[in-house]
Design a protein around this nucleic acid. Structure first.
Length: 214
DNA sequence: CACCAGGAATGTA
DNA sequence: TACATTCATGGT
């Protein structure tokens, strides 16, 4: 049973790394902002960008919506792709403001909300799902490069495209936001802790057949 | 020096 | 549909 295998891996990860308390942000606005800034970018650089935004009181969607792009660019430079991301943040901020913010958007069901998020230029599947799971607490599994690597290494799926992998987790696990939250966070944690060179890490904290590096 | 990091949009065939 | 390119900073 594939579901048992997924649970087995989850328990092993949780046992070694413990709870991760994701998303690493203080407010929902910061979750959304961070979700955009972290696109293909090391989290360390995202932290610097967010710190700059906070210092300038620009760490809210409303502030980003009302502030000149040039000021935002200066703040988020450490996160890279700052020209694109400034525009992306503007698009997302405008989306939330024009739709009445979290209070109105949370009234939509998950499929409808996901579709609307994907309609924002700069919000792809992973970013949309990160927002759904971590800002709206919806039972959506977030798939990233690490998740694909995990599935490939452990041969959990033939197809490695986003939808196939997401379906794998969501069809074989309970639709529990807490579970999906922790599972994704643990996969990222594990990926960061392991070398990416060897198929099986030397001194891997996990047993050999469960080493999650590639 | 090369290569990558919690992607997405756009262009090409 | 399936790849290739572009975007940009900072760490290893």
């Amino acid at each position: 049973m594939i579901g048992d295998r997924l649970i087995q891996i989850y328990k092993k990860l949780l046992e070694h790394y413990s709870n991760q308390h994701w998303w690493p942000a203080e407010t929902r606005d910061e979750i959304v902002i961070g979700a955009v800034l972290t696109q293909n970018t090391a989290w360390k650089n995202v932290e610097r960008a967010i710190e700059n935004l906070k210092r300038a009181n620009l760490d809210t969607l409303m502030a980003i919506h009302q502030t000149k792009s040039s000021r935002i660019k200066e703040c988020i430079k450490p996160a890279g792709f700052y020209n694109q991301k400034t525009q992306y943040l503007k698009n997302v901020a405008r989306f939330f403001v024009e739709n009445g913010g979290f209070e109105q958007l949370k009234k939509l069901d998950t499929p409808a909300l996901r579709k609307k998020l994907l309609g924002v230029k700069g919000v792809g599947k992973e970013t949309a799902d990160s927002i759904l799971l971590y800002a709206f607490d919806r039972p959506i599994f977030v798939v990233d490069a690490y998740t694909k690597r995990l599935c490939q290494r452990h041969k959990l799926s033939e197809q490695l495209d986003y939808d196939s992998i997401q379906g794998l987790f969501m069809e074989h696990l309970d639709a529990d936001p807490k579970l999906f939250n922790e599972y994704h966070a643990l996969i990222v944690k594990n990926a960061k802790e392991h070398c990416r060179k060897k198929p099986i890490c030397k001194g891997c904290p996990l047993e050999e057949d469960l080493c999650l590096s590639d």
